[in-house]
Simulated scan of single mutants.
Amino acid sequence: MANFDISGIVQCLHDARQQWRQAHRPATGEVRGIEFPSRDALAAIVGQLKGVLFPMRLGPTGLRQESEEFHVAHALDSALHALLRQVEIELKYSAALQQCTGADSAGQALAVTQAFGAALPGIRMMLDSDVLAAYQGDPAARSVDEVLLCYPGILAMIHHRLAHCLYQLGLPLLARIVGELAHAETGIDIHPGATIGAGFFMDHGTGIVIGETAVIGQHVRLYQAVTLGAKRFTTLADGSLQKGQPRHPVVEDDVVIYAGATVLGRITIGKGAVIGGNVWVTHDVAPGARVAQAAAREDGVNGHADPA
């Protein structure tokens, strides 16, 4: 019979865990018995919520319109009860790390989950605008149903609209998990903190990166491999990164950014501007301007800016 030195490996794994805990929880010490939110549970919840938001397209196979309301009510009740459990887990986890005692996590979790449920109609309307933008912006799209069922950018936006709501409700870990579920499936990486206006369209989508503090206006269109990132990171006296500072671009209404463009820092891309493919932008772009690949000069961008 093969010998794998199980006891030795187990001891080494134990030592590795202890080393990690001592190094990364110096202030709070080890938090014993803590439970973490479940990726599998959240994937199931989001799956139910897709059917709640779009029952006839993303709901169960064979659903008929006459039973649509029953399905929505049943699936919504199930999803919110399951989400309530995950919210409780995150709030307890956060309280344990901050050494908060006596907090009414159950009451807070219920209030947060109720607020999330109440936000779903607004999320549906925002998603309708995204679907319509994709249909109107892509000549290959034959119908809005094709867009909703097939386009990775729409899948990513369903996750993002849900995740952003969770983020705003003070649940960053749940929000990040929901966002990363779509990232793994589509290759589109949107931080749940990013604020994105109505009618947002990501054509093709693969490789798009949108940072936490990015602000995107209405009717903006991005193509594959666009990055809205940070130019530099502020460090504290101990050398650690300062978190939560605005460090990503502001993209105003009606902007188009073509494939491979990299836009970095807390800069503003003005309304109606067009950013060409594969350019590197680190300074403000005026409303209506067009930025193409580098020509003979650099006016604050790695490209040539012309008025529209």
Rank of each mutant, 00 (worst) to 15 (best):
P55K: 11
Q86Y: 06
K92W: 00
S240M: 13
S38W: 09
D189Q: 01
H14W: 03
L91W: 02
D145N: 12
D5L: 12
D299N: 01
Q245N: 05
R247H: 06
K271H: 15
V178D: 03
A16M: 11
A96L: 02
V215P: 00
K231I: 05
I6V: 11
A96P: 00
A295D: 06
A305M: 14
A140G: 09
F4Y: 13
H204N: 15
E90R: 08
H71L: 10
Q98G: 02
V178Y: 01
H219I: 01
T213D: 02
V220Q: 03
Y93M: 09
I9T: 14
P287A: 15
P246A: 02
A286S: 12
H248S: 10
S105R: 12
V87C: 08
Q114N: 08
F54M: 06
Y223E: 00
R221C: 14
A308H: 15
E185K: 15
V10C: 09
Y151E: 02
H304I: 10
A194D: 09
E146R: 09
L84M: 04
Q168I: 13
A182L: 09
F4V: 12
T206Q: 05
I9G: 01
A156C: 14
A111H: 15
D203G: 02
V131M: 07
G205Y: 06
C100W: 08
S67N: 07
L236R: 12
G239P: 07
G277K: 05
E68C: 14
T235M: 15
A163H: 10
T262K: 05
G260A: 01
T268W: 10
T206I: 11
G276A: 10
A198G: 04
K50T: 03
L174S: 04
G239V: 07
V220K: 00
D130H: 02
Q48M: 13
P249M: 08
G8P: 06
S143N: 14
A103T: 12
R25A: 11
H219T: 07
W20G: 02
A111S: 13
S240Y: 00
A261G: 02
P172H: 03
A43H: 13
G29F: 08
Q48C: 13
R124T: 03
I158G: 05
I188N: 01
K231P: 12
Y258K: 02
D104L: 13
N302D: 11
L148V: 06
E35A: 14
L222N: 09
